[in-house]
Amino acid sequence: MSDYLHRTIPNLKPFNFNRHHDALFIDQQWVLVNGISNKKSVYTFKTNNILEIARKDNVIKTSWTIILNNRLSIETEDGMITVNAYFKDDDILVLNNQEKEEFALYINTTTYEDDLNSIEDIQTFLKEKYTKKVSTIIYDHEFYFIENSKEFGPFKVEELAKKVKDKDISIYCFVRDVNEYDYSNRLRIIDLIKELE
């Protein structure tokens, strides 16, 4: 991954064929965020290596191919390009152009009821998505916390809040969901408690 992309969008996970291809990538409606204010484009990657790009009443059919791991080749109006594919999460896809210091960001709107036609729509989508995600994580999961280079847990948020109230741990300790492998999301106990208020 280029330093430019990593600095701009941290914590990207490379496209993984087994995990992403069938469940999250193929036959999904990916709205291109770049330039959405001027022209809305919806990309649909098909199983037969056809890429459909829908713009207003016009649908362009072109091709795409997996070259290796997370590297794809895509035929565009400007010719063939090579990109590395990454997921920010299940609904956000990033294609990083290998020839230039630029990337395209897409949002999966397949199951989203409202249309995304502007930057404001995208902001609303992301706010709703992450508010729902945080609420789900908080109420449905347990967390580990790290303090003085040691890991403890897992605990429910209510248990962590009690430990903070009893001054057993700092409200600024980093936490991770039991399904996460590290603390790269930089989530703290204070962030969880705020969502309970």
Rank of each mutant, 00 (worst) to 15 (best):
Y181H: 07
C173F: 02
L187Y: 02
K156D: 02
R176A: 08
I169V: 13
E142H: 07
E158S: 15
K163S: 12
S170R: 10
I169H: 04
F174Q: 11
V178W: 00
D166H: 09
I146K: 12
K165T: 14
K167L: 13
R186A: 08
F143H: 03
S184I: 13
D177F: 05
T136Q: 08
D140F: 08
K167M: 11
I169D: 06
E180H: 11
D177T: 09
Y183Q: 06
I171A: 14
I137W: 00
D140G: 13
E151P: 01
E158W: 07
N179M: 12
C173Y: 02
E142R: 14
I189R: 04
L160G: 07
E180Y: 09
Y139H: 14
E158V: 15
P154F: 06
Y181M: 08
K167C: 06
V175N: 04
D166W: 07
E180C: 06
I189P: 00
E159F: 01
N148L: 12
E180T: 07
G153C: 05
K163T: 04
H141I: 01
D140I: 01
V164A: 08
P154T: 13
T136D: 10
E159I: 03
E180V: 03
Y144V: 04
A161V: 14
K165C: 02
R188S: 11
E147C: 01
A161T: 14
E159M: 09
D177Q: 05
E151G: 02
V134W: 00
F152T: 10
S170C: 06
S135N: 15
V134R: 10
E159P: 00
